[in-house]
Design a binder for these strands. Sequence first.
DNA 1: TAACATTCTTAAGCTACTGAACGAAGTAGG
DNA 2: CCTACTTCGTTCAGTAGCTTAAGAATGTTA
Lengths: 404, 404
Amino acid sequence: MRQPVGDAAPNGRPGRARRPGARESILDAIRASEPLSRVELAALTGLTEAAVSMTVRRLLEEGLVVETGRAPTGGKPRTLLRLDPAARLAVGVYLDQDTTTYVLTGQTGGVISRLARPATDVSGSLLADLTADVDVLLAGSGVDRARCLGIGVVWPGPRGGSTEEGPPRLRGWDPDDLGRRLGATTGWPVLVENDATAAAIGEYWVARVGPEQAFAALYMGGGLGAGIIVEGRAMRGGHGAAGEFGHVCVQVDGPECWCGSRGCLEVLAGPRTVTAAALADPATAAEAGLDHTGRRSVPADFAAVARAAWAGAPRCLALLEDSARYVAAAAESVVNLLDIDLVVLTGPGFAAASFVYGPAIQRRMAAADARTWRRSVTVTVSLAAATASATGAAALVLQSHLRR
Amino acid sequence: MRQPVGDAAPNGRPGRARRPGARESILDAIRASEPLSRVELAALTGLTEAAVSMTVRRLLEEGLVVETGRAPTGGKPRTLLRLDPAARLAVGVYLDQDTTTYVLTGQTGGVISRLARPATDVSGSLLADLTADVDVLLAGSGVDRARCLGIGVVWPGPRGGSTEEGPPRLRGWDPDDLGRRLGATTGWPVLVENDATAAAIGEYWVARVGPEQAFAALYMGGGLGAGIIVEGRAMRGGHGAAGEFGHVCVQVDGPECWCGSRGCLEVLAGPRTVTAAALADPATAAEAGLDHTGRRSVPADFAAVARAAWAGAPRCLALLEDSARYVAAAAESVVNLLDIDLVVLTGPGFAAASFVYGPAIQRRMAAADARTWRRSVTVTVSLAAATASATGAAALVLQSHLRR
DNA sequence: TAACATTCTTAAGCTACTGAACGAAGTAGG
DNA sequence: CCTACTTCGTTCAGTAGCTTAAGAATGTTA
């Protein structure tokens, strides 16, 4: 949501904070905790029952919400409300290095259909390809196009996707510009975001995390990123560059990073470093089935190492466990700094290797959690970690529409 | 602001986000950028000129704001508005280990008068002492008590103030309970906060930081903490424990910390570690004029080391520079993670040794800033670093009243 | 002195919410 | 089955806080 391209809503930059509003509060409460009755909504949102009643009626008329069943009480039973999954749709696009993934989701974030295309290298055709593929996705799904709220576009972002100096450009495009143009050609609002933040919003949406949870999604793709959501709001920072988890320092005088600093997590324990180490040692490379000739993308190679480790290959496992020690330390730093309640591992990297990283992070935090902080941090793995970015892109649209 | 003790305002916990409101937007804009005219306020806040006009009239009637001078334009000149510093007052109390500091400030955060008392060890008399001392402070200042908005109470918090296990209790008191009781005995609203967050809010207020700046105040007292303010809101985390800067990990397998983890910044580079190292080496201790018999508080000993280093003592300087390397790395992590624009060093520790820590942090970030992130992070030292907590406690009250 | 530029004010109206009373839909007891 | 009771949801008038639109105030410029 760097810019609500194609949308009239000003991004709050010049001025005061956005207003909550009954509509948003209610939809968000239902999203996080459906089914809910009107009285429960009043209690959860702090609105009066009258306000809830009026707002819910409008939501029912719009078809966003449906009444579904009742819950017995001492008196009149509660009528339970849910989001109608098919009432609104969103398209998510993930522009990965070598693949472009499209998903069509319903209002609750559930995937309706999917599409994957190899990335086209002809930079001039990117816009046309996207437009055509979104069209194919919608046509093939047989849904009412009028119900589609917009398109979320996610790209790997500046974080770690590149060893060149400076933030990488997306196949020659400026992301915001691409979003604006795509909005013009398709007629839909287009929202642009980086992979980690999108994955966090997707997880927040699909896994029904509530705004009372301080939440961090750690994302491993070509690099390491973090999406942070506190009080229901994604932290994007002063220049939209927050979440550079890969550049948390875990060793003061560590090796130099491409970013110009030293000891960054990514250079010590990032997926690129893991795969490079696997390739550098013939025995390890053999375990993972890697060689220099048939080299694929970083996430693909990393997944090969993870699969080998899962199958019992000791050298691959050792590589991952070494990496996980660093990642766990950095994760603990984030949790301590922001008082995070919930850590979710997501993205293709963690999807493949969560069996190592998950326990490592839990182990690292367990001691101090109970002993000092009197908290208990939950560490989980995303249910759809491998495709988190694409569904996150769609959730981006859902999230923004809720605040229409 | 862990709890608005004695205040009726619910802390937003059950329900939706707080509303901004014209009054708050306007007062905050004037605070950050006075003097301002009504049209400028309209542009800054996003309100209409009509709304600004009405709201300002009310503020003028209340005496919070005054008209002061005019600025020529092509047409009718602008009438400039300022906060009236003396219109409202706030009391800040800092409960340090061995001293209790009281300040009385005006509406702009300027200190009107001060009071310091040695900490009483009789835990039963703390409440009575506070009540009496606040009374003395106000009486001695000759101000209208009705103008006082409330009392902010700040304590060193769980962070690093103790080597015992578990969060330390404040001379036997639960901070929230103390606040509640103090509110009852004095009749004023009492807000309770930890030192680092309070210092951040104080700096935000006094130094006129605007909400568009993502801002971190690094605080060194008995330990290391951070107050983080993004979009004008202090980050307190899920359980009010955010800002544990001292427990950012800067060495994966570093020495064990009292918190139960390893390689925490505080155990490698905190003030306690620096003073312990100075005492352990006789030559260094001699430079700093320290010995085991006349040992004082951690901040006092640390200040002695810093003074010696400033005077040219090489061993003391080396100790501080070693500490600063770690602090700089951790600061860089925070900046990268949250896309921070402005870092302010504050608290007695940094007040004494900023000549080492400031340049070290700037050096560490300069390379990657220009090369990779295309940002420029400002690192400054608080103007009143040594008393930041007490003025921050008062600012806490001002901040909360603005949102009455 | 008239025309213009800009700032600030006034007045009517709109939107979204609140408060309080009321209607609706169940259970429990006789 | 009827009554009392409980809890849920709605209705309606009122209000706070804003916007839109018009206009008054206060300066400069030709």
